[in-house]
Computed example of a mutant assay.
Amino acid sequence: MGKLTTRGVDALKEPGRYSDGDGSGFHLRIDPQGRKYWVLRVNDASGKRRDVSLGSAKRMTLAAARENARQVRDRIAQGDGAAVVTPTFREAARLAHEARTAGYRNDKHVAQWLSTLERHAYPTIGDKPVSDITRADAVQVLSPIWLATPETARRVLQRLDRVMRWAVGHNHRDERIDMSLVRDALPKQKGKRAAVRRMPAVPWREAAEFWRSIQMSTSAPQVRFALMLLMLTAVRPGNVRLAKRSQMDLEAGVWVIPAEEMKAGERHRVPLSAEAVTIIRSAMALHDHDQLFTVGGEPLSLDTLRMMMRRMGRTETPHGFRSTFKEWSLQAGWSDHLSEAALAHQDPNEVRAAYARSDLLEERAPMMAAWGSYLAAPPQIP
C-alpha cells in the first residue's frame, strides 16, 4: 500500500493497520468497532517494538498526525522515549495506581490492588498496549468470574475503569471504555440483593443521645470526628475511613466520593449539613495531610471505630448507622427514593434505574440538613 491520503483514510473501513508506506512506523489503526486512530510504531530503549498512540483520526488530520509522529521520533532520538511510548496494560495499571496512591504508605493495599489485576486481567490483556484495549477485552477478562465471584468481578471492573481513565488523562487513549456497556454484555448476576446482611444498628430514637456521648468521649479526636461524620452522612464506613480533604468542597457543601471507592462503582455526591462541615473543618485542623482520618499516617481501620463503640457500651456496628438513618428518614416523612439515593443504593428495577439519571443532590440536601439537626439538637428537658 502506498502513502496514506485523506480521501483514502476516509474510505477505509476494515479493522486493521494501514502503513503510511514510508517505513517510518506511522500508520492508521482501525479497531473492531470501526474507530480510527493514528499510531506510531517505534523501538523502545530495550529494543522492544512498541506503539505510541497519536490520537483519533476523527479529531486529527493526516497532516497533523504526521507532524506529531515526527516530533515523537525526535523525542525518542533525544532519549525521551519513556514519556511518549504507549504502555502495556500491565505498565499502565502500575502507573495509574502509583498516581492514585502517591504519598500513601499502605504497601499492603497497593499489593492487593495490583494482585487482583495480576490474577484476573494480566493473563488476557497484560501485555497488550493500553491504547488497544477494547470493550470486548474487558468482557473477556470479566466473563470467567462474573457469576462465580461477583464481588471480585466488581473490583476488577472498577480497576479496569481506573486504568482506562488514567490512560485517557495521559493521552495514551482517545477515550475510556464505557463500563456500563461491558456490564450489559455480561449475564445478570442473580441473588445479589438476597445476600445482603443487616448490620446491628443503633435505634433511631437513641441516635441523638449516642451523638452526645461521642462528643463527651475521651477517644482520640480523629476517631470521634470520623464516627460523627459517619452518622451525619450515612455513607459506608470505608468511605469515611478513606475520606480525603481534596474530595471536600466545603463552600458548596458537597463531598464527592470517586467511583473506585464506591460499592456500585459510580461516583457519589454527598450533601453536607452544617454539622458535617463543622466536623470536617475540625478534622482538617488536626493536620495538613490529604487523608482526613489517620492514625500513624495510615487510614483509620474499621476496628478502631468498632472498638470506640464497644468502649461506649454499644454492641451495634458502624455500618449500622445507615439503617439508623434510613429508619429515621421514613418516620420523619422523607420519601423512600431520596433516602435510597443518600445510601447510594442501586434501583433493582432496571428500567426505572435507566431513566433515573439524576443523583437528586439538591433534593437530598434538606433531608441531610434535617438529619444533622436531629442528631445535634440539645436534649429535651421533661
Score class of each variant (00 low, 15 high):
197 R>W: 07
200 P>N: 14
162 R>C: 03
141 V>Q: 09
167 A>P: 07
185 A>F: 02
227 L>M: 13
182 V>M: 13
194 A>G: 04
243 A>T: 03
140 Q>P: 10
224 R>S: 00
249 D>T: 02
177 I>A: 07
217 S>K: 13
214 I>Y: 12
137 D>V: 00
189 Q>E: 06
145 I>V: 08
179 M>R: 06
142 L>N: 11
167 A>D: 12
154 R>D: 10
241 R>W: 11
183 R>C: 01
223 V>Y: 15
244 K>W: 11
201 A>T: 12
242 L>Q: 11
241 R>I: 11
139 V>P: 05
149 T>N: 05
239 N>D: 02
231 M>C: 09
198 R>G: 06
161 D>I: 00
212 R>V: 00
203 P>W: 12
191 G>W: 08
205 R>L: 07
198 R>W: 03
192 K>L: 08
244 K>T: 12
195 A>H: 10
246 S>A: 13
137 D>F: 09
246 S>Q: 06
177 I>W: 07
162 R>N: 14
234 A>M: 11
145 I>D: 15
171 N>I: 14
135 R>K: 15
133 I>T: 03
211 W>V: 00
251 E>Q: 06
231 M>Y: 04
210 F>C: 05
129 P>G: 08
176 R>T: 01
253 G>F: 01
214 I>C: 01
141 V>F: 11
242 L>Y: 06
207 A>E: 05
240 V>N: 01
145 I>Y: 08
210 F>A: 01
155 R>Y: 07
205 R>W: 15
136 A>P: 05
215 Q>E: 05
149 T>L: 14
225 F>Y: 12
195 A>C: 15
225 F>M: 04
195 A>E: 15
143 S>C: 06
218 T>R: 04
211 W>T: 00
235 V>S: 05
220 A>F: 13
157 L>N: 12
248 M>W: 03
163 V>M: 12
233 T>P: 15
194 A>H: 14
134 T>D: 07
178 D>Y: 09
251 E>Y: 04
134 T>F: 03
255 W>H: 10
238 G>S: 10
143 S>Y: 10
133 I>A: 01
132 D>M: 03
130 V>K: 09
242 L>V: 13
199 M>A: 10
194 A>I: 07
206 E>I: 00
130 V>R: 04
132 D>Q: 11
163 V>H: 05
248 M>A: 05
155 R>T: 08
203 P>Y: 08
150 P>A: 00
144 P>S: 10
